[in-house]
């Protein structure tokens, strides 16, 4: 069955949530979101392979608890492997490591593959895997609603110091709600234009100016129609007494259980270790062993 050339909705289906009903699915979304954010921070901040291994183990444990097959997450990483390889080569070529202290494994013309390059590529790969799997785990175990509610509640303390936490959560909510509407609107516009002779047929190669020319009569009415919709929504919200986050109450309330605190504590400890490993000689030890084996 062929997809229609106007079938935009297909590309914007959010099919990430995998309800298996596990303990991790039932955990407080605030804890899961906080863990996700901590993971991103820790992974970005560390430069230790040993530390990343720890974080990796944490994520894998999460998958086991959530009863989600690891293969699910693997499929997300596969398309990236060639790129990572490319990046590794690039690293070896473009950023010469003129450092006498490093072991040179391989040399060809101006390309040198040194131990430092190997470490850099391995680090890149490890960071990437941990991030992809960590964030996938969050989206597999938390529904969009839980995510937005959780974020809002998590940010609520910031409200006291004047940061618009509620507004941010509401804005994200509206944004997520509008993406499929935009897809519909675009589909309608494309169909209406095609009906009157516009040619969206794929296949023919268009140069850049032609592509932009074709895009303009689609994008401008799309944005204007979106703004018009926004006007309607503004009226609807004002009619329902929306005046910002101050003084609002909330239908959804979260109560953290002992297990939620336990999860948070575990995550904190592991990620602290991940970051700390960057400042210790853990990696150096690991590398000495690896280098010895190589020789």
């Amino acid at each position: 069955m062929s997809a229609s050339e106007f079938d935009l909705l297909r590309t914007v289906t959010l099919g990430q949530y995998l309800p298996t009903g596990s303990a991790l699915h039932r955990a407080d979304p605030r804890v899961k979101i906080a863990s996700g954010i901590l993971l991103v921070v820790a992974v970005t901040a560390t430069s230790s392979l040993a530390g990343l291994t720890l974080a990796f183990a944490l994520v894998i444990a999460g998958f086991a608890v959530a009863r989600i097959p690891i293969a699910y997450a693997l499929s997300g990483i596969k398309p990236m492997l060639p790129f990572l390889a490319l990046l590794g080569i690039f690293q070896a070529i473009a950023i010469p490591q003129n450092d006498a202290n490093t072991t040179v494994y391989w040399r060809w013309a101006f390309i040198t593959l040194t131990a430092r390059d190997a470490v850099a590529v391995a680090l890149l790969f490890a960071k990437f895997s941990v991030l992809v799997w960590g964030i996938s785990l969050l989206s597999f175990t938390t529904s969009t609603t839980a995510l937005t509610h959780g974020t809002e509640h998590l940010l609520r303390p910031l409200q006291r110091i004047g940061l618009p936490a509620h507004e941010f959560a509401l804005m994200v909510n509206i944004a997520l709600r509008f993406v499929p509407l935009l897809a519909q609107e675009t589909e309608r516009l494309m169909k209406a234009q095609a009906s009157r002779g516009a040619d969206f047929g794929a296949g023919r190669r268009l140069n850049f100016v032609q592509r932009f020319r074709k895009l303009l009569p689609l994008l401008i009415p799309l944005i204007l129609a979106t703004l018009q919709r926004a006007e309607d929504l503004i009226l609807a919200m004002e009619a329902r007494c929306y005046t910002g986050g101050k003084g609002r109450t909330h239908l959804v309330r979260f109560r953290a259980q002992a297990s939620d605190y336990a999860i948070l504590a575990l995550v904190l400890i592991v990620l602290a270790a991940t970051v700390a490993a960057g400042f210790t000689s853990a990696d150096a030890t690991v590398w000495r062993i690896v280098s010895t084996v190589w020789r």
Partner: peptide, 19 residues
């Protein structure tokens, strides 16, 4: 479509009273 604020029916109904 243009007057629904929340993604879940209950949340949308609660929006006014919450405000």
């Amino acid at each position: 479509d243009n007057q629904i604020v929340a993604t879940i029916v209950e949340d949308d109904v609660a929006f006014g009273p919450e405000n």
